[in-house]
Amino acid sequence: MSERRELTKQEEAIFKKELVQLIPHLRAFARTLAGDAAAADDLAQDAMMKAWDARGSFQLGTNMKAWTFMILRNQFYSEKRRSWRQTQLDQEAAERTLLAVDDPEAPIVLDEMRLALHQLPAEQREALILVGAGGFAYEEAADICGCAVGTVKSRVSRARRALQSILTDGSYERDGAPAGDAMRSILDHAERLSGVR
């Protein structure tokens, strides 16, 4: 399984090209884990380099996106274990960043969504992101998270329910005011965007 081998020049070029194409996705996934944009980019870079160094153990032709996401996720949790205190500080910085919004309209709603996402337990959040935004099948998400498919399914559905109730009832507070209208503006936005009915 973890057989390492030397890639040919051609294989290496293919690997590198695919890896480069995945960078934007790694950045986006890292952002959902780390919150703070700068910390997220560090994480994405580390994951990219780990993937590059491990290229000899990647099976060309298999799902490289899932493979790199797994590397990124492992990297995140091993760093987090090493310095949970630092992570806590990062979290505070992230929340300050999230609250600092200049544009008065749509970004605020995005902001509500980010805040709501960060209220979810980490394992629910990542399952929902992988399946709901990353485009992964439940099976792939299970591989990435190292858990059973059924576990991913239940995490995703619990996350969806929790998000809906956070956004509807404003179960979190923002500058002292409940964000009760978040769901309303998200609905309005979705309608404007794509005519979702």
Binding site: A28, F29, T32, V109, L110, M113, R114, L117, L128, I129, G132, A133, G134, R160, L163, Q164, L167, M183, I186, L187, H189, A190, E191, L193, S194, V196
Partner: peptide, 10 residues
């Protein structure tokens, strides 16, 4: 709507 927003965020 949540799905749309989530994907947009990503």
């Amino acid at each position: 709507a949540i799905g749309v927003r989530l994907r947009q965020l990503f």
